[in-house]
């Protein structure tokens, strides 16, 4: 999953190398190396690309190709809070499209925009289709989502930080 601020450790070459030491000897290490870096730092920064290429013995272009293929991997620092709303069919049938618009208004930001505090993303099925609309608020799964429920989870999440 796309990382949130809560998990972020400040990037340093030493800690990035330490992360890569845990993955470089795995079979097919490239993707899991990027996933491991993201779970450590909250995103994959430009400086990681060279390190990953060296650790996995692949070209930088290959690293770039994998990095841009997968939706979870992000190249910008994570927001304080991440709201992911399912817009796949089962949740659409319960109005997830208008829920997205309502959350956009309520948070004052648009889907896909990265602002420092709350980021809203579209998600495609969270496996909670019988209790839609489904959403993740900082990795907490919400069923029968409403603006109120999402806002209340955001407040709880803010307190946990």
């Amino acid at each position: 999953m796309a990382g949130t601020r809560g998990k972020r450790t400040k990037w340093s070459k030493e800690s990035a190398t330490a992360v890569l030491d845990t993955t470089r000897d795995e079979p097919g290490p490239l993707l899991i190396s990027l996933q491991a870096l993201q779970s450590r730092f909250g995103y994959v920064c430009d400086k990681d690309i060279e390190l990953v290429a060296a650790a996995c013995n692949v070209s930088r272009a290959e690293v770039h190709g994998v990095l841009t293929f997968y939706r979870d991997l992000r190249r910008t620092p994570p927001p304080n809070h991440l709201v992911q709303i399912c817009v796949a069919e089962a949740c659409q049938s319960l109005g997830s499209r208008s829920l997205v618009e309502a959350i956009e208004r309520s948070c004052g930001t648009r889907i896909g925009e990265t602002n420092a505090d709350v980021e809203i993303q579209a998600a495609y099925c969270l496996g909670n289709c019988a209790l839609g609309p489904a959403a993740f608020v900082d990795e907490v799964l919400i069923g029968r989502s409403t603006v109120e429920k999402i806002r209340s989870e955001l407040s709880k999440s803010e307190l946990r930080r």
């Binding site: 796309a2 097919g28 993707l31 990027l34 994998v66 939706r71 991997l73």
Partner: peptide, 25 residues
């Protein structure tokens, strides 16, 4: 366990294999 990275096509079996091998799906 291998964890996916956000991609529907990686449910297609050969794309899944590519992904497990660490490549683009």
């Amino acid at each position: 366990i291998r964890v996916g990275a956000g991609s529907y096509i990686c449910g297609e079996e050969t794309a899944m294999l590519e992904s497990i091998e660490g490549k683009r799906g």
